[in-house]
Amino acid sequence: MGIILGPNQYGKAENRVVRIVRDIARHEIRDLNVSTALRGDFAAAHVDGDQSQVLPTDTQKNTAFAYAKKHGVTSPEDYALALARRLLEATPAATGALVDVEEYAWDRIAVDGEGHDHAFVRRGGEVRTTEIDLSSDGAHVRSGLADLTVLKSTGSEFKGFLVDDYTTLPEADDRILATSLTTTWRYSDHGQVEWNKAYDDVRALLLSTFATTYSRALQETLFAMGRAVLEAHDEIEEISFTAPNKHHHLVDLSPFGLDNPGEVFIAADRPYGLIEATVTRDGEGR
């Protein structure tokens, strides 16, 4: 039995690229975490130590910064597509380039009721994400968001579930529903996509559907959110969710002579239920 090299790739992880647009008085900021990787015929580097076909990871890093200036960052998707194309052009042995981008949001600091031209405050939590996989087959684009924490203080129940010898969870007719949402959506056609507009619209649909859907389980809510996105965006083929339950347990205040009609809770960070689902299109409907 012979020994051969299996699938492999290499790259530069987590380049912190901050692009300031300052050629006008009202500056703009794009704050990115960029990871790149190349795959292809790099067997010689592994087997023989021959680096002649290897574009150094340091060069990948430099390209990420240079393209933030040369190409600009109008959106994570547009920037990542340009960066992936450049890395493939520069590396003849590469058959594919993977570029992952996280974008951290900043808001303008309000001064006298107006957003300041060049002072910003970092928005907590939520991160915008993009994954570009570029090869001779074309570009595969996944956009998304991570750590979007949402909560409903009512409009949620959980009952009628399977019970066995180890079940202690009581049924709930009215409970807090909260999660820290991570979701990605895959574009089937991205030729005419306005990246920022599409992202804003999907995010708004996710939030409005979460808020207005009566939930009999987090699973039902996720499906409703995914369905709303696919119905509104023909260019999106599927959307995937990872949603940890952020449990809130009612605190017993009776030892202190106090009632607690669903008003005081303890937020438990672990253990937690982890719900994952993908909502996709039925091929017969396309």
Score class of each variant (00 low, 15 high):
residue 16 R to H: 15
residue 16 R to S: 09
residue 16 R to L: 11
residue 16 R to M: 05
residue 18 V to D: 01
residue 19 R to P: 00
residue 21 V to W: 09
residue 21 V to A: 14
residue 21 V to I: 09
residue 21 V to F: 09
residue 23 D to L: 01
residue 23 D to R: 11
residue 23 D to V: 05
residue 23 D to T: 14
residue 23 D to M: 04
residue 23 D to N: 15
residue 23 D to A: 03
residue 24 I to V: 15
residue 24 I to G: 07
residue 24 I to Y: 02
residue 25 A to H: 13
residue 25 A to C: 00
residue 26 R to P: 00
residue 26 R to T: 11
residue 27 H to N: 10
residue 27 H to F: 09
residue 27 H to L: 05
residue 28 E to T: 13
residue 28 E to K: 13
residue 28 E to D: 12
residue 29 I to N: 04
residue 29 I to R: 11
residue 29 I to M: 07
residue 29 I to Q: 02
residue 30 R to T: 09
residue 30 R to K: 13
residue 30 R to F: 07
residue 30 R to N: 12
residue 30 R to H: 14
residue 31 D to S: 13
residue 31 D to W: 07
residue 32 L to V: 04
residue 32 L to R: 03
residue 33 N to H: 02
residue 33 N to L: 15
residue 34 V to A: 01
residue 34 V to M: 06
residue 34 V to H: 03
residue 34 V to T: 06
residue 35 S to A: 03
residue 36 T to K: 01
residue 36 T to H: 03
residue 37 A to F: 08
residue 37 A to Q: 07
residue 37 A to E: 08
residue 38 L to R: 04
residue 38 L to I: 06
residue 39 R to Y: 02
residue 39 R to C: 13
residue 39 R to E: 14
residue 39 R to V: 00
residue 40 G to H: 08
residue 40 G to I: 08
residue 40 G to F: 06
residue 41 D to A: 15
residue 41 D to Q: 13
residue 41 D to S: 13
residue 41 D to M: 01
residue 41 D to R: 13
residue 42 F to N: 11
residue 42 F to W: 09
residue 42 F to H: 08
residue 43 A to L: 08
residue 43 A to K: 10
residue 43 A to R: 12
residue 43 A to D: 15
residue 43 A to Q: 12
residue 43 A to I: 10
residue 44 A to P: 05
residue 44 A to V: 05
residue 44 A to S: 14
residue 44 A to K: 12
residue 45 A to Y: 12
residue 45 A to S: 13
residue 45 A to W: 13
residue 45 A to L: 02
residue 45 A to N: 06
residue 46 H to P: 00
residue 46 H to V: 14
residue 47 V to F: 06
residue 47 V to K: 06
residue 47 V to I: 15
residue 48 D to K: 13
residue 48 D to S: 11
residue 48 D to F: 09
residue 48 D to L: 14
residue 48 D to M: 10
residue 49 G to D: 03
residue 49 G to H: 08
residue 49 G to Y: 09
residue 49 G to V: 11
residue 49 G to F: 05
residue 49 G to S: 08
